[in-house]
Design a protein around this nucleic acid. Structure first.
Lengths: 237, 237
DNA sequence: AAGTTCTGCATTGTTAACAATCTTTGTCAA
DNA sequence: TTGACAAAGATTGTTAACAATGCAGAACTT
C-alpha cells in the first residue's frame, strides 16, 4: 500500500493547456497586442492553440470572470472594453492595494525581493535602449505584479495581475496618444524608498506613479469608439 | 433598421442558471453549511439545481478560480480546504483592502451608505436575539461585503466577497471551538467611526476587528485532519 | 487473518453531432 | 437608390454518447 505521506498533490486544478491559453491571452492584452473589442472566435483559438473547443471555452469563461473578456450570449467572446466608470474603479483599487503593498514591503522586504525588483528595472532599461516597445509595455505592467509577488501573497498577486491587465485595456481605450509606458525612473524611486525602509515615501511614490498614468488618460470623453466609427464613415470624414 | 441607441446590453455574460449555482454555493459556504473537503459531485449538483452537467461544470470552474472549490483531476470537486499559509494570506489581504475601504468611506460616504450599514447591523441584532445561528454567520460576513459595496467599487466588492467566503472556510478549519461570529458591537464601532468622519479610528476599528477574528484561530497547529484520521483509526483510539 | 490483485461499478473527462442563434448576402419592392 | 425581407452560411450553445480514470468489493494467495 502507498504511504500516506506520499499523497500526491500533483493533481493540479487546471490543465496546463487551459492555463496556457489564459496566460497567452493575458500576455497579449498586457502587451497591447490584443485591442479591446477584438473578437476571439472559438475556431480561431482552437486552431491557434491546437486544442479542442472545450478547452477554449473554459479558458474564455475564466477570462470573462476576471473582466478581461466579455462573453456575449450567442455572439461570442470579445476582448473587454472597460467603461470610464470601470476604469476609475480599477485605478481606485490599484491605488488602495499597491500603496498597501509597498508600505509593507518598505517595512521589511527580503534581500532577494529587492534584487529581483532591481533586476526587473534593469530589463526595462535594456528594452528602452533597444526601442523594443512591446517588451517595454510588458515590463512596465509586470513590474507592478512583481511588487505583489515580493509580498509573497498569492491572493494579492492574482488580483493585481488582473488589475494591471485591465489597465492595459484602459490605456488602449483612453490613452490620449500612445500607450504611455511607466517611466522607468518612477519605478526606480519606488524601489529606493522600499529599500531604504521608508513606507511613507514608498506610498507617495507609487501613488504619484499610478495617478500619473491615470492623469495621462481622458476618462471624461463623452462617448467612445462606436459612435466615432459611425460618424466617420457616414459623414464625409 | 434598429436604432443605434437601442443597442441591447441585455446580453449578460453568464447565464442566470450558472450564476445561481455559484451564488448558492457561495452562500452555503459563507453560512458554514458546506464544510471544507465536502465532495461536490456533478450528479448531485445536477439534480439539486435541475440543470445539465455543463452548467454544473462551468460553475465549478468559476468557483475553483476563486479558491472556493478545489478541482482534482479525475476525482471531482471538493469544497476548498485552505492551508494555514493560505489563511494568513487571506487575512493579510483583507487587512490591506478593508482598512483602505473604511478609511475612504470615513472621508466621505453617502447618506444611503450609512443607512444601509446601520440597517445591516440591525438585522444582525435581530438574528442574535432569535438565536438564528446560520443567519448570524451569514450577516457577519455580509457586513464586510456591504462595506465594499458602499464604496461603489465592483472590483473590490468582488474580491472581498471571495475573501470573506474563504474566511468562512478558514474559521471552519482552524476555529478553536465554534464558528466565531463577528461581535456586533465591533461592527457598530466601525460604522460610528465612518459616520463621524474619522479615518484613523475607522482603520483601527476594522484592523482590531479582523485581527480579533484571526487571533481566535489556531493557525499554528502542526498538521490537520488527514493524519489525525489515520492515527485515530489505525491505533486503538 | 492479513494483504494483494483483479474485476465491476461509479464518476469524471472528452469528443462529436445536433440545435439554436446571429450575421451576411442577395433579392425585391417602393 | 434605399429600405425591408428572406435565405444561406457561419458561429455559438447544448446534449448525449463514449472513453478514461478512480474506487470499492470480492476472490485469491500466503
Amino acid at each position: 500500500m502507498k504511504n500516506k505521506a506520499e499523497e500526491k498533490l500533483d493533481t493540479l486544478r487546471t490543465d496546463p493547456d487551459e492555463q496556457m491559453i489564459v496566460d497567452r491571452i493575458y500576455s497579449a492584452v498586457m502587451e497591447q497586442k490584443l485591442a479591446p473589442r477584438t473578437k476571439l472566435s472559438e475556431l480561431a483559438l482552437c486552431e491557434t492553440f491546437g486544442v479542442g473547443r472545450m478547452r477554449v471555452r473554459r479558458a474564455l469563461l475564466l477570462l470573462s470572470s476576471q473582466g478581461i473578456v466579455d462573453l456575449r450570449s450567442n455572439r461570442g467572446a470579445y476582448v473587454a472594453c472597460p467603461s470610464a466608470d470601470e476604469a476609475r474603479e480599477v485605478f481606485v483599487a490599484r491605488l488602495m492595494i499597491e500603496t498597501g503593498i509597498v508600505q509593507e514591503l518598505a517595512r521589511g522586504i527580503s534581500h532577494e525581493g529587492i534584487q529581483s525588483l532591481r533586476a526587473h528595472v534593469e530589463k526595462e532599461e535594456v528594452a528602452r535602449k533597444n526601442n523594443d516597445r512591446t517588451e517595454m509595455i510588458r515590463l512596465s505592467g509586470a513590474f507592478h505584479v512583481e511588487l505583489a509577488r515580493c509580498h509573497n501573497n498569492s491572493v494579492l498577486t492574482r488580483v493585481l495581475r488582473e488589475l494591471v491587465t485591465r489597465t492595459s485595456l484602459i490605456v488602449a481605450l483612453f490613452g490620449s496618444n500612445r500607450g504611455s509606458t511607466c517611466p522607468d525612473d518612477e519605478h526606480t524611486s519606488i524601489i529606493d524608498a522600499i529599500a531604504n525602509g521608508q513606507p511613507q515615501a514608498a506610498e507617495d511614490s507609487i501613488r504619484h506613479h499610478i495617478l500619473h498614468v491615470q492623469n495621462s488618460l481622458d476618462l471624461e470623453q463623452t462617448q467612445r469608439a462606436e459612435p466615432d466609427l459611425a460618424k466617420i464613415l457616414t459623414g464625409r470624414m
